[in-house]
Design a protein around this nucleic acid. Structure first.
Lengths: 167, 167
DNA sequence: ATTTTATGTCAGTGTTGTTGACTTTCCAAG
DNA sequence: CTTGGAAAGTCAACAACACTGACATAAAAT
């Protein structure tokens, strides 16, 4: 559409509106697949995606505070609180009052919570593993690169904060 | 894409659980960015993502039937109907009774509906274009390949049914 | 004539988001 | 030390939007 740049010799055909539209639909359809398997498991437990997200990030960073989770998930604290309340009363999550700052609640998965987390992430990883394997390492690297650039800077910080496998 | 196979000496380190977890979070955070810009526009109009999806696919395939849209979107007809009803009464979408089969309603965007579609897709494309450009054509190809393999087969059919830009 | 298909509607429920009001705890300025 | 504000978390009420189930209408198919 626009993007001059042919001076560099690069074709830039991958930036046409048609290509971008393909990318948009790829995201839409792929995300549906991405959430389909966990959704089925969650349904059996009477939970939704909000519960999955909470469980995922508590697993990733045990002892995280409610406020920290709030920043990552980008919802209101009231919304998150409802989810955490049910997870706690169902015995999947434990909230310990902060030692230093007693206002804070540090969140941990219980054994039972860990079980559900494993079931959910196993299902999700299985699909991702199949997709990765079929696409190959080179495609996977491209996949990650594009997604990183699609994130809001704030979210990219949270993403990058994950401990890198190979480091 | 290229199918290495362990026999070829390929490392397969990209299939570790840690790498897969990175991929999972990349999808999560990127999808948030992916929907952020249209969400802001939709809010001004009192619409939600459901309206966006309907508008997008009516734009992509003008004259599509309600039933066809149902299959693509994967929601119940009651849910879709609520959205279509508001879009029609707001004058963004027009439903014409089928000429051949009078039970069918063929859906079209009005001029006003086309305007909103453009605003929404412009916003979404702008972000995708930036991500694509920064990542480069090779990464974009990998991105698309992995996403395709992540879709449910049914959805992949809909995705592939789009007219390919270069064909 | 009967059945099936395509669409639309009404009622009810559940998840998840929101805002508003409130409590408890911490900290810092007077 | 007290007071006042900020921060963390909770409770209650409401809105958006998904779902199921039951039902209605019209037209196509058998």
């Amino acid at each position: 559409m626009d993007q001059p740049g042919p001076s560099s010799g690069e074709s830039l055909l991958f930036l046409t509106d048609e290509q971008l539209r393909k990318g948009i639909e790829a995201m839409f359809f792929a995300y549906r697949g991405f959430t389909a398997d966990p959704d089925r498991i969650l349904e059996d437990h009477g939970y939704g995606r909000a519960h999955h997200r909470a469980i995922h990030f508590i697993h990733r960073a045990p002892g995280t505070t409610v406020n920290n989770l709030l920043n990552i998930l980008g919802v209101t604290k009231q919304s998150l609180n409802r989810v955490l309340r049910t997870l706690q009363s169902d015995g999947l999550v434990e909230a310990r009052v902060g030692a230093k700052d007693k206002r804070e609640r540090h969140l941990y998965l219980t054994a039972k919570g860990g079980e559900l987390e494993r079931a959910l992430s196993d299902a999700q990883r299985q699909r991702m593993r199949a997709a990765f394997r079929e696409a190959g390492p080179n495609a996977v690297a491209g996949f990650r690169t594009v997604l990183e650039h699609m994130m809001d800077p704030e979210m990219r910080r949270h993403y990058a904060a994950m401990k890198e496998p190979g480091q």
